[in-house]
């Protein structure tokens, strides 16, 4: 074979592999829309999204409480995970001596490797009874779910943020130090702002994991279809709704679960667009730390 045909084959081969992921996503989205549209048509898009009652046996399909549930659980867990994760990443990249880092980093990475069912079971057996004795109620709550999620997304935020902080060019740090800034001033005013695009990426990835997480949430969130009035109320997430009822659903109920999937996909797309916009904006205004 001549070098030219070799090149040609490799180029096309790479192109096909790149294409395959797009095709798969397109197929999934088409399938979900085809299965879900009948429900949206018969219930009505507005009634489906803003309906307050989910009671398939009575023909009531409203997912609004679950949209709020998903957003609330994700928001609350990000609220806890972002500060924790970023400070941990700053510690790891800037302050920790190599010996500490060698222990801490694998430990955090192990957290990422634990299957979600194990987190869920841990939550059900340990965290739910703990929350019940501490705060009363049933122990199944938005807060319990968010705590479990925080632990699950922490490793993502820490490792991606740490990489971002580490890849800030050393000249920035040296220049800042040479100007007489302290180490903390350098971190706060030079290194962290330069690494912000990477930090935002880490938050996007964490958010994606949080909003898509299903199994662990089912086991600890209580799965009650209601808009929570306090963080100690049980909630149901969109993902949980699909997983809980898929095995049994028939007819319109089955389509309604796919429609739940459509809502979830649209929601994730909107969140990703917002997050990417922030990412893009920070890149332009700061100028440095292009990651």
């Amino acid at each position: 074979m001549s070098r030219k045909t070799d090149e040609f084959l490799i180029e096309k081969g790479l192109f096909i592999t790149a294409l395959s992921s797009i095709i798969i996503i397109a197929l999934i989205i088409i399938f979900i829309f085809v299965e879900g549209l009948p429900a949206l048509q018969s219930v009505g898009v507005f009634n489906f999204i803003f309906g307050m009652d989910w009671s398939p046996s009575d023909g009531q399909f409203g997912v609004f409480p679950m949209i709020i549930g998903s957003l609330a659980i994700t928001g609350l867990s990000l609220l806890m995970a972002i500060p924790l994760g970023i400070f941990c990443a700053i510690f790891l990249s800037e302050i920790a001596p190599t010996s500490v880092r060698k222990i801490l980093k694998p430990t955090i990475q192990t957290l990422a490797g634990i299957p979600s069912v194990v987190y869920g079971f841990f939550g059900l057996i340990i965290l739910v009874p703990f929350m019940r004795t501490q705060f009363g109620g049933t122990g199944f709550s938005m807060l319990t779910a968010s705590i479990i999620l925080t632990v699950m997304i922490l490793p993502i935020i820490v490792s991606v943020s740490e990489d971002a902080l580490r890849s800030v060019p050393p000249e920035y740090k040296e220049a800042s130090m040479a100007l007489g800034a302290t180490h903390w001033q350098t971190i706060k005013n030079v290194i962290f702002p330069a690494a912000i695009p990477g930090v935002i990426t880490s938050v996007i990835l964490g958010m994606g994991r949080a909003i898509g997480e299903t199994l662990a949430i089912i086991m600890v969130a209580g799965n009650v279809v209601q808009i929570p009035t306090s963080i100690l109320d049980p909630v149901r997430a969109l993902t949980s709704n699909i997983a809980i009822e898929m095995g049994y659903a028939t007819g319109l109920h089955y389509n309604a679960l796919f429609a739940t999937g459509i809502v979830l996909i649209v929601m994730i797309i909107i969140l990703l667009v917002i997050a990417n916009y922030l990412h893009y904006k920070k890149k332009v205004t700061i100028g440095g730390g292009y990651l």
Binding site: S55, P129, T138, F140, I218, G222, N223, I244
Partner: peptide
Amino acid sequence: NKIKAEAIVLTSTESIVQSVKGDPNA
């Protein structure tokens, strides 16, 4: 009659056993 909407929903027999075992008021 309908089961009240505030009831906790669990998805397996085993998780109900675990919760009832741990909660004196369940």
